[in-house]
Design a protein around this nucleic acid. Structure first.
Lengths: 236, 236
DNA sequence: CAGTGGTCTAGACCACGCC
DNA sequence: GCGTGGTCTAGACCACTGG
């Protein structure tokens, strides 16, 4: 029953846990690489691989000749990539959804291009109102290739997170999202839903989700409430 | 006159250049790690360190048992972090600025907290209209600690990029920016400048720039034109 | 000076994809 | 089976920081 998890992954989990529990405090030094070598009975290159990754994700930073420190600016990698459900839960809100449309339809040229499929292939179109504590926060319109996710329409996306279904039943995980964001005046039915008024200020976000094989798995075109939803972004 | 640039850095530059020149094409395989070992007369760990970094930055992706490939989704790291001037130049626009205000003032509590300085220390306040091909795109308000950048007021920020001045004269480079983005209705003088109207839709972006020592160097509170400016974001 | 991180070597064995 | 990337070892020397 030996662990098959790579040692460097174990070290990453260990350090993350110690940061989360406050045992390693923000701005404070953590044990030296040599100490981790002894503790995990491994070589320095392995320890460095672990720390490299944590530095890259913004958890730690190094100063040559001094040591390795816990970042003041803890940045939760993959927060956004994990989707609305996870994001809202993290913030302490109860997420829910109302499905407006869920159907199979012919692929428009723009969407075919984004998803890198042929316009003759069909897509699922899922349109939902996303809510936090029952307040409407966004209208999310997602297109997914039918061929890649056959039978997706048996699931209810009022109860289920789309990402959970893709992960559990299609073994597909989102690696990154490439998005464009701008501000718009929202009118018509979407304004009615989000603002209960004829007009309101919103953010339009369009983009593609890419999986671990660098294949596009979904194209989204969504409208977020301008003031209820704040994007938290790290540029590097 | 031997090179003091680390070998893995040389390999990174080499591969990037080959991607830029189209010698390594999008989606195509690049030479194996072993081949790079021979070519650069180095060990595999060194080659891997180089490729690791390029994978991390989205230039390459690996498939175990097959090889390493050039990403379809080439994402230029640090595009945003390099600031408005660089960003606009990349997009093919001619950036320019008009300074509205540039003065030393007492630090408000919120800003002191963001910059991690005492409220008794002063800050420089720089407010500019940012333009692309002479069209107003954004109002950018930046606060910088006086103590950290003494004499900053001798520079003209109509001609100079703020980041260039910080880099050249203060040896300070931005490592990352932590920003919050939402949509707002812009009114008053800012609407007049950006939209030549009484009202318009914009994006409010507030955040902190962090340097390579993880110190905060600037706090910004800016308004971007809602439709003329599109944020390009990668979530991972 | 001792201790830290930064770079590097020359091997090794394993898991996976393809033929 | 062979070549690929994934993980790992047990050292080495250097550059930098601090006392």
């Amino acid at each position: 029953m030996t662990d098959t998890i790579p040692i460097y992954q174990q070290i990453i989990s260990y350090i993350k846990e110690y940061i989360d529990n406050g045992i390693y405090q923000k701005g404070n030094i953590i044990p030296s690489e040599q100490e981790f070598c002894n503790q995990f009975n491994t070589s320095r290159m392995t320890v460095r691989k672990a720390i490299d990754e944590l530095v890259n994700d913004g958890y730690l930073y190094r100063i040559q000749g001094r040591g390795t420190f816990v970042s003041h600016w803890v940045y939760r990698k993959s927060l956004e990539v994990l989707g609305f459900t996870y994001h809202m839960t993290q913030l302490g809100y109860k997420p829910s959804s109302k499905v407006l449309t869920f159907e199979t339809k012919r692929t428009e040229p723009l969407i075919a291009e984004k998803l890198k499929i042929l316009p003759t292939e069909n897509v699922y179109f899922l349109s939902r109102v996303r809510m936090a504590d029952l307040e409407p926060i966004a209208i999310e319109n997602v297109y997914l290739p039918e061929k890649r996710f056959p039978g997706l329409d048996v699931y209810s996306f009022e109860e289920n997170s789309l990402y959970d279904v893709l992960k559990t039943y299609y073994k597909t995980e989102v690696l990154l999202k490439q998005e464009k964001i701008n501000a718009i005046m929202v009118e018509g039915i979407y304004a009615k839903i989000l603002f209960e008024k004829d007009k309101g200020v919103g953010m339009r976000m369009t983009g593609v989700d890419i999986d671990t094989n660098m294949s596009p798995i979904a194209y989204a075109n969504s409208i977020y409430h301008g003031t209820k939803y704040i994007f938290d972004v790290i540029f590097r």
